[in-house]
């Protein structure tokens, strides 16, 4: 085995610094909170906005994707997993802000989901999404290749 191969073998796949481990845990936890809130609200929202795919089914889809991204971050903790976490969290945050402030009509499979208010669960999921997006974005920026 050459020296280069030995270095490659012993190089840790993911950084092990306490700060980075804490960030990984934070991102995963935030995504899981987001998933739980969406799953909890899905039943009612499906009945409230059943057209197209239905708001509840979109919530369930968001939950599944968020859990997947959280597991990806926990298991791999590489750039791809942080990128996935960032995309999932940022898109969910964009959607909740869009439907909070803009009366978007039903569009294809997406029902009208305008909801001009905040309530504890919704606020919690938005904070969780923002946390995950900011933390994942920060890790991505810091680990940017020269």
């Amino acid at each position: 085995m050459s020296t280069t191969d030995q270095k490659r073998t012993h190089r840790p796949r993911t950084p092990r610094s306490p700060a980075k481990l804490a960030l990984r845990a934070l991102i995963a936890m935030a995504l899981l909170v987001d998933a739980m809130v969406h799953l909890d609200l899905a039943g009612g929202y499906q009945l409230a906005a059943p057209s197209g795919l239905g708001a509840g089914n979109l919530f369930r889809l968001e939950s599944v994707v968020a859990v997947g991204a959280a597991v990806f971050v926990l298991v791999r903790g590489n750039r791809s997993s942080y990128a996935a976490a960032f995309v999932v969290a940022a898109s969910a945050l964009s959607a909740v802000l869009l439907y909070r402030y803009v009366d978007v009509p039903a569009l294809g499979p997406f029902p009208a989901m305008y909801e001009p208010l905040w309530f504890p669960e919704k606020t919690l999921s938005a904070i969780a999404e923002a946390t995950a997006a900011i933390a994942a974005g920060a890790v991505l920026l810091k680990s940017r290749r020269p």
Partner: peptide, 13 residues
């Protein structure tokens, strides 16, 4: 009394 409920939102309640 007869009560009417008018839902002006785009979603069901």
């Amino acid at each position: 009394a007869t009560v009417m409920i008018m839902n002006l939102d785009a979603v069901n309640h």
